[in-house]
Amino acid sequence: MHISEGILSGPVLGTGMAVAAIGTAVGLKRLDYDHIARAGVLSAAFFVASLVHVPIGPANVHLLLNGLVGLFLGWGAFPVILTALILQAVLFQFGGITTLGVNTAAMAVPAVIVRYAFGPLIWKRPPVAQAAAFACGFGAVLLGAVLVGLALIFTGQEFLEVTGIIMAAHLPVMVIEGVITLFAVAFLKKVQPALLPGYCARPVDDTPEGKNEIDTP
């Protein structure tokens, strides 16, 4: 999902940059001291995730992990994804410098949406919670495919066709990311629930770590 240089028109690039800039500003504002280390870890994870190639399906696709980043950080996903994309563009030549804005928006907007759509549900009863965690990973890639399709619409390609191709190519990734997010949430609930959003809504348990409070952004 890295759009290369030289494909998109000026207005699309400009819109992407504007969205990315606003999102990054909001994200940085909300990224307080307590979330910095987490943001760094997630940025590193996002940075290397695109090297994990999924050899299923027709196209050449890789993991994104934007759902996971969004779930843990909300608006913080913008600066985290932007940082990782800059490094990927410079070091791996994935995507491009002019398309940074569009690529950031295409991956961070879904991250924020799934966070607010499904994030609160992960503290419900197991079937609902599991479905919500899966939907976080699955939905973020799905929405990302739609946004990339939207960005490419102005290049003269048919929106439904392009989006269909991108979605078909990313279907295995959606499922894999859904499962990864499902397990990550289940694991963190046991080990370090304070890392998950909306934790303070839970009754405090009596281990010293359990009393950690987390200000949700």
């Binding site: 990224l31 001291y33 910095i36 943001a39 590193a44 490094l87 070091l91 791996f92």
Partner: peptide, 22 residues
């Protein structure tokens, strides 16, 4: 394709940025 040093370099940058932000 990216070499191991590219990958580690990128992670190093991120760690540095975390330090700076903190």
């Amino acid at each position: 394709s990216p070499s191991v040093s590219d990958i580690l370099g990128g992670i190093g940058y991120i760690i540095g940025l975390v330090g700076l932000a903190a």
